[in-house]
């Protein structure tokens, strides 16, 4: 059900986004930062789900809070003539890589385990077959 919701949300979001008007170029910088913050939250959420300590409240507050905070910081930076958005990008992208690494490791380990089990099964099966064949041969003889 959650999966369905995600897919549906993505489709509807894409439709809305495509049909939405173009935002002014001056504000696209803020939006980009907000997107990166939101993506960071999403990857964080996935990573925490894999670690089995996912909290909905933390996720939602992080998702919207980080986006808004990064926009505000960018605005402040522009007012102060300091590129604060660079710091935001560094932090968010760094965290994103961290979370991606966690996700990657998790699935890699899972895959490796699966392969191991499969191999064992095959070996077992082959061993069985061999023994059966041997028995059959003996019976034939």
């Amino acid at each position: 059900m959650i999966f369905i919701a995600i897919v549906l949300g993505c489709i509807i979001g894409a439709l809305i986004g495509i049909n939405a008007p173009i935002i002014p170029y001056t504000y696209s910088g803020y939006l980009a930062i907000a997107i990166i913050a939101a993506l960071d939250s999403v990857f964080g959420g996935i990573a925490s789900t894999l670690k089995k300590n996912f909290d909905l409240k933390i996720f939602v507050s992080g998702f919207f809070g980080n986006a808004i905070l990064s926009i505000l910081l960018t605005y402040l930076g522009q007012r102060l003539n300091v590129d604060i958005y660079l710091a935001a990008i560094v932090v968010f992208v760094g965290r994103m890589f961290n979370n991606l690494a966690i996700i990657r490791r998790y699935y890699l380990e899972k895959f490796v385990k699966y392969r191991k089990i499969q191999k064992e099964k095959i070996v077992e099966y082959e061993g069985k077959n061999q023994s059966e064949n041997a028995q059959k041969k003996e019976i034939k003889k």
Binding site: I16, Y25, I35, V42, L56
Partner: peptide
């Protein structure tokens, strides 16, 4: 609750992303 929140989050994120792409 999780599903609804995910739905909203996805809509927002993808919508904004596509807007940005377009821009």
């Amino acid at each position: 609750a999780v599903a609804t929140v995910m739905f909203i989050v996805c809509i927002t994120l993808i919508c904004v992303m596509f807007m940005q792409f377009k821009t």
